[in-house]
Design a protein around this nucleic acid. Structure first.
Length: 244
DNA sequence: TCATTAAATTGTT
DNA sequence: AACAATTTAATGA
């Protein structure tokens, strides 16, 4: 149980459908794409399995093809702090890959997932050769910075309904997680783990959000109806413009 | 393909 | 934490 990187074993090459799920692939020129595809590995991860651990040297830049991962870190007292969930279409670890350092977080599968990995050397090669790839990574870093600032706000929110709404908005981020689309596959239990609330309280919050037509609760997932409302949940409504 | 059964998930107390 | 109700997945004819 809890073996190390899932990509060390059970790896294989990707199908066409899986390649389609990789957002930066379409930005590459044919020869760059060829090299990237040849290097990409994919593996299944079972629930609880670690994709990477704090302190291990970086070997891959990772992406979620399908499923749901959890990013966390252990503090000095040995307590685990969860930072965020990573739904399909999300790529992570570029910060550490850039510096060729060791992983700063633990990444664990919350449910059965499919994870893709691009070797760090290829990651650097793409940075050196592809403008489209550079743009993707820069956009990614910028968007995630916004998310982490928002996450600090979320942490200070006491109202569970608002916490759930904002956390959901983060998971529905179309830039960071283009594989999610309209429906996020996540159980209320999994969301409870991510947000740090009980499943009952999450259920209550989701019911409230559904009542506001921000989302619709479905079996095994959530459909977003009003992403803007989720994002701004708990904020003061904008002042009316004095124009017209 | 359909019917039956088991498992997963949700809603409620 | 426990329970019943609902939905999906798995099984086998």
């Amino acid at each position: 149980m809890a073996t190390d990187s899932a990509l060390h074993q059970r790896r294989r090459s990707l199908t066409a459908a899986e390649l389609d799920a990789i957002p930066w692939m379409r930005l590459l020129a044919p020869h760059e794409r060829e090299r990237a595809v040849g290097d990409l590995k994919i593996a299944d991860a079972i629930p609880g399995e670690y994709i990477c651990r704090t302190g291990r040297p970086v070997t891959y830049w990772f992406g979620v093809v399908d499923g749901l991962l959890k990013m966390s870190s252990d503090n000095a007292e040995g307590q685990t702090m969860t930072f965020t969930g990573i739904p399909p279409g999300g790529w992570f670890g570029e910060g550490t890959a850039l510096k060729r350092e060791t992983y700063r977080y633990n990444i664990q599968a919350l449910r059965k997932s499919m994870v893709a990995g691009l070797h760090v050397d290829t990651f650097h090669w793409l940075l050196d050769h592809s403008i489209g790839f550079n743009r993707f990574v820069m956009n990614q870093l910028n968007e995630r910075l916004g998310q982490f600032i928002a996450a600090r706000e979320i942490d200070r929110m006491t109202n569970p309904d608002i916490r759930v709404a904002r956390s959901l908005a983060a998971l529905f981020n179309p830039v960071l997680y283009p594989g999610v689309g309209e429906v996020l596959r996540i159980t209320q239990q999994e969301l409870a783990y991510l947000v740090g609330l009980s499943r009952q309280r999450v259920n209550e919050a989701l019911t409230a959000l559904a009542g506001q037509d921000s989302i619709r609760v479905e079996y095994g997932g959530l459909r977003v109806l009003n992403l803007a409302a989720l994002r701004s949940s708990g904020s003061a409504p904008p002042a009316a413009l004095p124009l017209d």
